[in-house]
Amino acid sequence: MTTSAPEPLLALSDVNTFYGQAQVHFDLSITVGRGHIVCLLGGNASGKSTTMKIILGLVKPRSGEVTFDGASLIGLTTPQIVRRGIASVPEARRLFADMSVRENILMGAFVRNDRDAVAQDLDRMLTLFPKLGQRLSQRAGSLSGGEQQMVAMARALMSRPSLIVMDEPTMGLSPLYVDRVLELIRTINQEGVSVFMVEQNASLALEIAHEAYVLQTGKIVLSGPARALKDDPRVRDAYLGGAEAA
């Protein structure tokens, strides 16, 4: 699929992050090429979720640079970053449980002001996620985990992002839904949206990703094209123990 390296859309370079005294990231550098699916693998407490929070501006790095589309994201608030074109599917979905499915999906378009186009996009989501059609007026909290994941993905797409960051999109889903979600990520990507996802389930993630990074206690220990990493025995050694414990 990949012939030459695309221009970088998102780049973290030499990021160091701390929680109080504890250092979470050590000179972390990650690049997401435009149009690519990039996967960050790692076990528990490797700093994966904090990487997402850095990109979204929920956690500030102590040093290092984060650029998106050529401009720095450092110092911007989360809403400002979202307006730049980054949408997120948070860990454990984080839907607005007491709002309806329709309201949840439309919340994804919060930063947009083109009402008619938003309405069209809502229809488009219902073709992409046909199951949600019958659930539109239901409370989001009443859906199953897999259905909630669909809502979270639809919600992220509604802002017409150029990059979606996903935190463990397959976590806690039945095998059937895992395949469905991975298929959808690929579809979304083929429509031109870049994807940066954090995963514990390496073998599945590497199937759809272009590039992958392996994070271990805050340091990148391996990186490269997904195809190459899939066959690399070090990938198993590097983190699978943590994944199985989870």
């Binding site: 948070p90 007491d98 709002m99 930063v111």
Partner: peptide, 11 residues
């Protein structure tokens, strides 16, 4: 309902 998630929607 979810302050962080709302921020991630641009609120």
């Amino acid at each position: 309902q979810d302050r962080d998630a709302a921020m991630q929607m641009g609120v």
